Amino acid sequence: MSATTVDYHGYQLYSTFQPILSLCHRRSVGFESLLRPVDGHTRPHSPASLIRAAAESGDIRYLDNLCQSLHIRNFSAQAPDERWLFLNLDPSTITDRWYHDGTLVEALKQAGVPPERLVIEIVEGAIEDESQLFAAVDYFRSIGALVALDDFGTGHSNFDRIWRLAPDIIKLDRSLIVEAEQHRTGRLRQTLPNLVSLIHESGCLVLAEGIETREQALLAMDSDIDFVQGFYFARPSPTIDHQNMDNSPALNAITQHFVTTATIEERLEADRTAPYIDAFRTAIEKIGQGVEPHLAARRLMTMPRTARFYILNARGEEIMHVDGSSLRGNHRLAHAAPITDTAGGTWYRRQYFRAAMAEPHRLQTSRPYLSSTGAYMCVTLSLADSNPPERVICCDIDW
């Protein structure tokens, strides 16, 4: 079936669609509609320049409505059921509340597209008046559509707005993935999974757009991002490729690569911690034989990445600790002096303490986290050595 086009002031306007893929489902879940203008000599033109000219001439409302109807018709003619149409609206359509004119609802009705299959993309930072933004979200929800906030991670973004708006999908700005890719050991690369987790906790799915390399795709997978979109998987096209839509070679390849590398990394991580676990168990055995804790942990404390060895009572209160050799000469500790003295501290709220209390005699290994005793990343080994637990023996490893 040939695609529908429309004329606009000497331009021929086309729809193109870029797949949005689910990393879990390993298939497309929707398509973002994008405008492609061509002049009378079949030369392509920038959509941004056309939209800018329409805004300057006061014709943006007409052009926006024209594009909405065009994309909806072309999507309806090609897309299979159970796929979303991601539709961008010009910010002025929202700020001037033109969406109330019924054009969008009528276009959906004529094309036979249920509003539940529509995802309205709103650029959060482009709308300064929050009342306009909230009113638009309420309206689109009232007609049955979903709402996605676009370009999250730029200067205007804030979590307070996400929690109050509760959009269905957050589209991360491409700069977040690019920055994380370029700095393999940087903070953003370590923080990205936590950012995604925080967005998930607010009830939103996460989409990473602009994925152009395998490394970026693997970063998205490693960060627990739900959906991906970008040239690495597919370029925008006027036609929807049904054959490759649910069997993306690129998606299959990174899935297999991730499974393989994740297994290797888990093995390497286990190898990395094994000597510390052995020394930790030896220290616990000696303590059980009556050896003083600081003497029992002597070998452990000489290992290069041992940060702290300490014992907590059943209330999580610290009853003894020894600082490890890895902290000597650490320049960060000079700035962390107010928090390095842990006398009288309580670690009851820490997951590693509660896990050890729940399963006596079972060694627990925490996920990497930022230590509040020196502001360094660490992993904690913990074990309750009696049942019922009367104390929990712990060791922090500088990560």
Rank of each mutant, 00 (worst) to 15 (best):
A384F: 04
Q182S: 11
I284N: 15
A297S: 14
F159W: 05
R161M: 06
F231P: 04
S33V: 04
A283P: 03
G112R: 03
A217E: 08
Q110L: 08
Q68M: 10
K286C: 08
R308W: 05
S69H: 02
P193R: 11
A77G: 07
S28F: 03
A145E: 00
G155A: 15
N330M: 09
D150K: 08
T255M: 11
P193M: 07
P167R: 05
L198N: 05
S49W: 11
L188M: 12
R332H: 10
P360W: 02
A274Q: 13
L172N: 12
I240E: 07
A126L: 08
E121C: 10
N252R: 10
N88Q: 09
M320D: 06
H45S: 14
T191H: 03
I169T: 06
T5Q: 11
D278P: 00
G102N: 01
V228T: 10
D90E: 08
G324T: 09
T154P: 01
S69I: 00
G288L: 15
I122V: 07
D226W: 14
E106L: 01
S202T: 12
Y376Q: 13
L188C: 11
L63T: 05
S371T: 01
Y310R: 07
V291Y: 04
V206A: 12
P115E: 05
A234F: 13
S248H: 07
F75S: 00
C394T: 10
F152S: 06
V147I: 15
E181K: 14
E32H: 11
I211A: 11
V196Q: 09
T306E: 01
A336T: 04
S248P: 05
T306P: 06
I170L: 13
F233R: 13
G144Q: 08
P368A: 09
D323R: 13
R187P: 04
H25R: 15
N65V: 00
H257M: 13
K109Q: 13
V196P: 10
F258K: 12
D224V: 06
I177K: 03
A307E: 14
F309V: 08
R189G: 11
A136L: 05
E265A: 07
R308C: 10
E265S: 07
L176S: 11
T5N: 05
I170M: 08
V379H: 03
P167Y: 02
L198Q: 06
S142E: 01
H242L: 15
R272W: 12
T342Y: 04
T380G: 03
W98H: 12
D39N: 15
G230Y: 09
S157A: 09
P389W: 10
A337I: 13
G153S: 03
S326I: 08
A334P: 01
V178R: 15
P37E: 13
F227I: 15
S372K: 04
P236A: 12
F140N: 01
I199W: 04
V113E: 01
A107R: 00
R267D: 09
G10V: 05
H242W: 10
D173K: 08
G344Q: 10
Y62F: 07
R299C: 04
V392N: 04
A343G: 09
D168Y: 02
